[in-house]
Computed example of a mutant assay.
Amino acid sequence: MRDDLGVGGVAREVHVLYARWYEVLARGSFPRDDVTWQYPPGAGAVFLSPALLPWLSYFEAFVALTLLADAAVTLALARAGRTGAWLWTGGLPLLLHIPLARYDVQVTAPAVLALLAVRHRRPRTAGVLAGLGAMVKVWPALTLLGTPRGPATRAAWTSAAASAAALLAVLVLGFSHTLDFLRQQGGRGLQIESLGGTALHLAGLTGRPVTVAYRYGAFEFVGPYVTGLARLSLLLSAAAFCWLLFWRVRARRWTTATPFDAALCAVLLFTVTSRVISPQYLIWLLGLAAVCLTSRHTTQRPVALLLLPATALSSLAYPVLYEDVLAGTPLGCLLMVVRNALLLAAALLSARRLWTAAEAGRDGRRKPAGARTTS
């Protein structure tokens, strides 16, 4: 394995940033006053994990563990259904070497395994995996959104809370400055790959003044309209959360695929309303879409298909043509408009199909095999 895999900005994050965090964490402290540290404390375990392979360099060990997580996801999906495994193994390479140089495969693994545990009626196992995943990067908690009402949901959510609390307690006792990430997360602005960022880039093409600056470890817009658009993103995320809760309350029809479909829909909605839509977010979406395709009852097949071109365009935008995206050239703007339009279309289609499937149980229409109604 070569240390120069992906020479340039993509691999630099592991070589420099992750390795620097590793040195700090190895001394018993989370990064302090570091604007680039914006992750829940469970992420520290991932950045420390290359110590398990001391005979390799930090980068080599990180990539090796990423490949191990990838293999675990692939095996689990293959056992659940070949179509899902094909989407994962065929979709991930569209991101080039980004999956090997970010820690999102390691985050996606517990989310995928949590959903498959729900399928096998192991709610406590699902809860533990979702809780641990949420402590690494928050969004795996959404895998429990679609658990059927009743004892299964209570067991899953209770286990998730207990496992997250236990891990947090261990980290608080073992490290200093465990919650310092909260200060940095609150200060983030509007990143250039977001929907709001695309709107500003388009405004720049019409002659309006726009400025990009490197802040909080990413390129963000600064200047007029930025604060308003960032607040609008947060409001849309809150609205998405309220809609998901409303869906949960009204839904009466569950199939074996409902937990999978709800998880994909939720993560898609929070992705498109985010102030940041980095290419590695597609790793999450591919993993969840792959789980959806393991069930013949899923409503999300067209959504999964939309994610494939969005994934390919994400790697074109970064790293292949990132200079164009950064400069806001017509080509860079076109890439981001099409990529974000695909993601927005996927999110809206996902929500519509999830809602329609839940409402089918209210109007008396025939349920497909494997469906059941709860009250």
Score class of each variant (00 low, 15 high):
Arg188Cys: 08
Leu308Ser: 01
Gly44Phe: 04
Ala199Cys: 11
Gly28Ser: 08
Gly150Phe: 11
Leu5Ile: 12
Ala230Val: 11
Thr258Glu: 05
Ala230Met: 09
Leu245Trp: 13
Ala312Asn: 05
Leu307Val: 04
Gly6Arg: 07
Leu168Met: 11
Pro148Glu: 06
Gly42Ile: 03
Leu245Pro: 05
His120Ala: 15
Ala69Thr: 01
Ala130Ile: 00
Leu335Gly: 05
Ala141Gly: 12
Lys137Cys: 05
Ile283Val: 13
Leu313Gln: 05
Ala164Arg: 07
Ser278Ala: 15
Met1Lys: 12
Thr227His: 15
Ser163Leu: 01
Val105Cys: 01
Ala156Phe: 09
Trp247Thr: 08
Gly332Cys: 06
Arg149Gly: 11
Thr74Cys: 02
Gly189Asn: 09
Val210Lys: 10
Gly197Ala: 08
Phe175Val: 02
Pro99Trp: 04
Val291Ser: 03
Val128Glu: 06
Leu115Asp: 03
Ser295Pro: 09
Thr108Met: 02
Cys265Asp: 12
Ser57Gln: 02
Ser163Asp: 00
Pro279Met: 08
Tyr22Met: 11
Gly146Ile: 06
Ser314Met: 00
Ala358Lys: 08
Val222Ser: 11
Gly186Tyr: 06
Leu171Glu: 12
Val107Ala: 01
Ala357Ser: 13
Ala117Ser: 10
Leu25Pro: 04
Arg352His: 15
Leu182Pro: 09
Val14Ala: 05
Trp37His: 03
Val276Phe: 12
Gly90His: 04
Val291Gly: 02
His177Cys: 09
Cys242Arg: 14
Ala251Lys: 10
Ala64Phe: 00
Cys242Phe: 15
Leu92His: 03
Thr108His: 00
Leu52Glu: 01
Gly28Val: 09
Ala360Thr: 14
Phe47Gln: 10
Ala162Pro: 05
Leu67Arg: 00
Asn340Met: 10
Gly91Met: 05
Val338His: 10
Arg231Asn: 15
Val35Ser: 15
Gly361Phe: 10
Thr374Lys: 15
Ile98Met: 01
Gly84Arg: 00
Leu25Glu: 04
Val172Ser: 07
Ala213His: 12
Val63Gly: 02
Ala346Met: 09
Leu92Glu: 00
Leu234Val: 14
Ser295Met: 05
Arg27Gly: 12
Leu48Tyr: 07
Thr373Asp: 15
Val212Tyr: 08
Gly133Met: 03
Tyr318Phe: 15
Leu171Pro: 04
Arg102Gln: 05
Ala11Pro: 04
Gly228Lys: 09
Thr89Lys: 02
Arg20Lys: 13
Val210Leu: 10
Val325Thr: 11
Thr374Leu: 14
Val337Ser: 08
Val46Asn: 00
Arg102Asn: 01
Thr211Asn: 13
Leu173Ser: 13
Val10Asn: 00
Asp180His: 14
Ala78Gln: 07
Leu344Phe: 12
Leu94Tyr: 07
Gly186Asn: 09
Ser278Thr: 12
Phe47Ala: 03
Gly9Arg: 14
Leu195Gly: 13
Leu269Trp: 09
Gly131Asp: 04
Ala69Pro: 01
Leu195Ala: 14
Pro309Ile: 09
Trp37Ile: 02
Leu48Pro: 04
Ala327Cys: 10
Ala164Trp: 02
Glu13Gln: 13
